[in-house]
Write a protein that binds this DNA or RNA. Structure first.
Ligand SMILES: [Zn+2]
Ligand SMILES: [Zn+2]
Ligand SMILES: [Zn+2]
Ligand SMILES: [Zn+2]
Lengths: 134, 134
DNA sequence: AATCGTTTTGACAATCATTCTCGATAACGT
DNA sequence: ACGTTATCGAGAATGATTGTCAAAACGATT
């Protein structure tokens, strides 16, 4: 059976304290900073578990996996700022339907999909337009 | 200025000989197999170039980058078989519009998106349903 | 509370894809 | 053909992730 360890709980907590997507390494760093003695491998394992239990969402950016505590049990996608990491959860029934349909039309089964939107959030867009105002 | 080397051409050719997405390593292996003396780093460089010149599409699967020679100049997405790699190019005007809109609604600029659909193609679906028929 | 079988941990090594280094090579404009 | 300079290739370096395995922690059960 699955056991409850303070390590798993620490990862869960640390994750939920971050509004945005974070890497395993970053999370481990933060935990160590705050005095925890948790191991890096444990953070990786805990995040992987959380992800396939549906308690966290994950995505790949620049070759590394990022995780985020997300609204549990709800399938959704993300709008992410390339500059500051600000993340917005977005629902999109239309996209879900489209994905299902296009798969079916080509005879595909067990369809899953990866849908992420990246951009510059409002604040970062302003900064880039007028860097002097920082 | 950019030069034309047989290495670049070899990668381009090898890529277009593959119907499906392939990794840099796999492509390098295939080239070596057929007698080429091209270096691995060169394959990586050539693929990266092809990708941002729009001659190839790329996606991340299981932590590695895969490339495919795609219909040039047309933005599209892919429906990919998780088992055999069969790939179908799909157009999705509705998704393009949706992505643009959802970004704009939240004040995001320079929106880009990652949209891929994975599943089991018709043949692989059959095999999985009745493995004895192989 | 002590015991016991099983799960989880963590330090470290190992793996694996990708990038970097840098001297050698080869394109291309002249 | 010449010189300039982008490109190449072999191997080292990097960086994220996973594997190893003895020690520690769980939790059910006395
Ligand atoms: Zn931002
Ligand atoms: Zn979806
Ligand atoms: Zn298939
Ligand atoms: Zn698109």
């Amino acid at each position: 059976m699955k056991r409850n360890t303070w390590q798993r709980e620490a990862v869960r907590t640390a994750l939920s304290e971050n509004e945005n997507f974070v890497s395993a390494q970053a999370l481990h760093g933060a935990l160590k900073q705050s005095g925890s003695s948790i191991g890096l491998a444990t953070v990786y394992r805990a995040l992987a578990d959380l992800a396939d239990e549906g308690e966290a969402d994950s995505l790949q950016q620049e070759g590394e996996a990022l995780y985020r505590a997300c609204t549990p049990g709800s399938h959704h996608h993300h709008l992410i700022c390339r500059n500051c990491g600000l993340t917005v959860e977005i629902e999109a029934t239309a996209v879900e339907d489209w994905a299902r349909q296009v798969a079916a039309q080509h005879g595909f089964t067990r369809a899953e999909h990866v849908v992420d939107v990246f951009g510059l959030c409002e604040a970062c867009s302003r900064l880039q337009a007028d860097p002097s105002s920082s």
